[in-house]
Amino acid sequence: MQTSETKVTGQKRTIVAAVMILFCIPLTIAIGILFLNDRSYYPISLMIILFATLPFAMVFESRKPQARELVIIAVLVAIAVAGRTAFFMVPQVKPVIAIVIIAGVSLGAESGFIVGALTGFVSNFIFGQGPWTPWQMFAFGIIGFLAGLLFSKGILSGKTLPLSIFGGLAAFMIYGLLLDTAAVMMFTSTWTKASILSTYMLGVPFNLIHGASTILFLLILSRPMTEKLTRIKKKYGLVEERNDS
């Protein structure tokens, strides 16, 4: 039952995603080329990001999640956002990616994406929305999604070390590169090798700190936190509940 359900939602997501990829995204690019004379990468990429996020939202909504699932996701989002406060004495250190990865591994790829994307959204609600919001949402979301997907396929083991390495790479490669790319597209008109490279180089120190702190977080946090989530899922029958309905 569990598997057939995931299969159905998986299919739905594939259909929606196919529509997005085959129809909406090319349309956006076409409109961009037709009406925006110069290379307006930024608006086009923004639209693509939005279209890539939509299927997740639609599938999640159509699944009609249970109260307990909503609450657990909301708790993880709020912990990721409020977690900064616990590190008030070490600036520039945020546990967001670590928590998103743990969410993806414990709750599955779908929920991993939702936790990630909503963390980006809610934290910007508190610190102020900006043009970076969709990028952050997508970057956090896709990290959570990948963690869940690789874990369920057996590629990523749930052990502390592989998770930490994955976290470090995700923070450096996925989050760092995506946001740096966003910056390149927003600031400059053309993709010259030099401009891209220099932006990435500028970003390296920040991304390194981010990656290293994520590794440290996961080294210490991943096991106890996964245990806690497992306990909650077991204690309150979150797994069974989905089967009942």
């Binding site: 909504e61 009609k64 909503l70 996701i73 909301a74 989002v77 709020a78 939702i114 809610v122």
Partner: peptide, 12 residues
């Protein structure tokens, strides 16, 4: 559902 999660997270 997502709106409710956002509302809950903003409360939490």
């Amino acid at each position: 559902a997502l709106s409710l999660i956002i509302s809950m997270a903003l409360r939490f």
